[in-house]
């Protein structure tokens, strides 16, 4: 059991200094993520335009894995289209769960999350932000007329 695989330098760096941390204003999509098992909570705010995530921020409280994953996710998806994000989500999901997975693209910093798959109890920490992002995108589709309805997702 190699802890340095889980707590890689880049993960500790993003935990201690999370990027895009705060609440985005104005925002036209948002979602809350909650992992009741460990108490992690995160709030995601996005500005979408022309099917593209122009900007996003997150805040909340979580463990090193969930905070770093959210921080790296905000960097990775900023400026990307929904289609790009869907592909990235798929790759990250496989990265977190499959030992022999070969991603369809260079995942950059996100590849550091690959160490999580040796720690099954922590996979949900890493994936919480991605599920929250999906919920925010879905909310934007369904209720652009009512942006005050913030969806809430829970993983356990």
């Amino acid at each position: 059991m190699d802890l340095s695989e889980l707590y890689r330098e880049v993960i500790l760096d993003h935990y201690k200094s999370p990027r895009n941390f705060g609440v985005l204003t104005p925002a036209n999509a948002a979602a809350d993520g909650h992992n009741p098992l460990c108490g992690d909570r995160l709030h995601l705010t996005l500005q979408l335009a022309d099917d593209r995530v122009q900007d996003l921020q997150f805040d909340g409280k979580g463990c090193a894995i969930s905070t770093a994953s959210a921080s790296m996710m905000t960097e990775a998806v900023k400026g990307k289209t929904r289609a790009d994000i869907a592909t990235l989500f798929n790759d990250v999901h496989h990265l977190l769960t499959e030992r022999e997975f070969v991603p369809s693209q260079d995942l950059g910093k996100l590849a550091a999350l690959g160490g999580v798959r040796e720690f099954p109890a922590r996979v949900k920490c890493a994936s919480l932000c991605w599920h929250t992002l999906n919920a925010a995108l879905a909310q934007h589709d369904q209720s652009s007329a009512d942006a005050s309805a913030v969806p809430s997702i829970s993983t356990e």
Binding site: Y7, L37, G39, G62, A64
Partner: peptide
């Protein structure tokens, strides 16, 4: 250090504690 991270690191040392609510 979030309790969940503590739990993982302690486990690697053979130490079983509970973390969470």
């Amino acid at each position: 250090i979030h309790p969940h991270d503590l739990g993982t690191i302690l486990d690697a040392e053979g130490v079983a504690i509970r973390t969470g609510h």
